[in-house]
Design a protein around this nucleic acid. Structure first.
Length: 121
DNA sequence: CACATGACGAGGG
DNA sequence: ACCCTCGCCATGT
């Protein structure tokens, strides 16, 4: 099936999260233009993490916690983040004030998409 | 068209 | 801060 524009935008936003930073499901949904569609971000991660090589580990929940279900997966995600320099507190939380991705003022999704499509062609 | 899905989020106790 | 309930919504079937 063809990906919807909405799905494409979510994919690009996840791709844009720089190493060593994180974002949240709700934040990505908001940036994609649908503030209450956090669960769609979950769906995209489920569906495209592998096929689109997404940095899935950089997406956490609004509490700054890893949201995966199994402990094996949680450990894997934590290791990937720690490898990028992201720190966890004693209760396994990430300080969002420190690590939440804050796009630069000149960061622009359309421009990013353009650059990406140029590289792809 | 009806219904299920889901790594969520806000709010209240 | 933790726990629970309920609302959410693009997609797939």
């Amino acid at each position: 099936m063809a990906k919807s524009a909405f799905t494409e935008v979510i994919i690009e936003l996840i791709r844009a999260i720089p190493p060593g930073t994180v974002s949240t499901y709700g934040r990505i949904a908001e940036m994609a233009g649908s503030p209450r569609a956090a669960r769609q971000v979950v769906r995209v991660l489920h569906t495209y993490s592998e096929t689109e090589s997404l940095p899935w580990h950089r997406v956490i929940n609004r509490d700054g916690k890893i949201a995966l279900l199994s402990s094996e997966q949680r450990n894997a995600q934590r290791e990937l983040l720690e490898k990028e320099g992201v720190e966890f507190d004693t209760s396994g939380r990430i300080d969002l004030d420190t690590y939440l991705w804050q796009p630069d003022d000149d960061w622009d999704l359309d421009n990013d998409l353009t650059i990406d499509s140029i590289c792809r062609s």
